[in-house]
Write a protein that binds this DNA or RNA. Sequence first.
DNA 1: CATTTATGACCGACTGGTTGGTCGGTATTG
DNA 2: CAATACCGACCAACCAGTCGGTCATAAATG
Lengths: 194, 194
Amino acid sequence: METELRERIINASLVLFERHGFHGVTVNQIVETAGISKGGFYHHFSSKDELLFVIHDIFITYVLERAASSNQQSLPPATRLRSIIKDFVSVFDIYKAHLTVFYQESIYLKPEHEEIVKRKRQQFKGIIQSVIREGVDTGEFRKDLSIEITTMAILGMVNWTYKWYQRSGEKSIEEIADYYIDLILHAVLSDSTK
Amino acid sequence: METELRERIINASLVLFERHGFHGVTVNQIVETAGISKGGFYHHFSSKDELLFVIHDIFITYVLERAASSNQQSLPPATRLRSIIKDFVSVFDIYKAHLTVFYQESIYLKPEHEEIVKRKRQQFKGIIQSVIREGVDTGEFRKDLSIEITTMAILGMVNWTYKWYQRSGEKSIEEIADYYIDLILHAVLSDSTK
DNA sequence: CATTTATGACCGACTGGTTGGTCGGTATTG
DNA sequence: CAATACCGACCAACCAGTCGGTCATAAATG
């Protein structure tokens, strides 16, 4: 099976955007790296901005679906939190470039695109928030947790990984995920649950 | 006392870069916002790139100095870690725009500038790493901590704040800092120390 | 003290190179 | 014989940076 041209464009631009940023890469460079022509590019994408959106959307849609399915099973909050984090961190291996672009270049999204991405992003955040809230309610987590800050702290810890993680590095993404889970649960579980 | 033109340029560009990114802002816009001329701009800065570097350098130099002085006092690791985090997070109030530019736009630094910033950045990271290492050695922190991942987890949690913190928000930066410290110490302290 | 010379802050019209995007055309496929 | 996929020379807009010049103040000169 031959790689679709559309895929080739996305893959090429992903590599380039990750390294040089959206505005640090020209359409000509993308086209050259993908081994196609300018006309070919504009046959598949209406603009450079649309390409940026597509990259964002592929990523956030995928992540959101996984988190939602991890969250559906009726298991205790701590178990679900573990599963959501594990799932999300594992995404770094395959989607590292998407992720980097997602977190670095989203300011350059056009308003209409930004709106769509923002909505999905908040749904994802909502999932984590609700797990923590539930954990606090059931007494599994510490009663004195702030739902809002705890959510952002976890998201921050996890998201920041894109700044330093390398597939060739010492630790595998699985190890890092397990390590994060350990840290988070130590921070969040109530004394009686530990 | 009148504001120096140089200061005016930095303040104007900080606001603009924070919202639109380095490449989303033209020199003409900066000049207009600062209420000066293009000539005036290039009289004070050799290039737009140099301006970006200056913003980076002001921030990292300040942060590094504070962390170094918090770290010097010969206090137990947990106390020092507390102090470093409190100090760093407090910086968000005054330097939020610097910080945002620092984390978003550093890919656009020219190699020679990047080198300088990178070095200071690693010194900062080194300070946190050494506190954690010491804490593990003295037994104050859990023996099974990975120095490297723990450092990055803390940095991630804290740094991510720039994505959501607003001075007008519900929680003050002091509260957020204290909250982070609480989470981190729960995650990191050995059972005997708790 | 008056006058010339020098310096440095600041101005803004202009430019050369670059970039996202277009468009008329060709190749391929069902 | 459509229709769709793809090509690449070309263009208009934009943007960082330049450059010849003004003005105000200070130092040097007679």
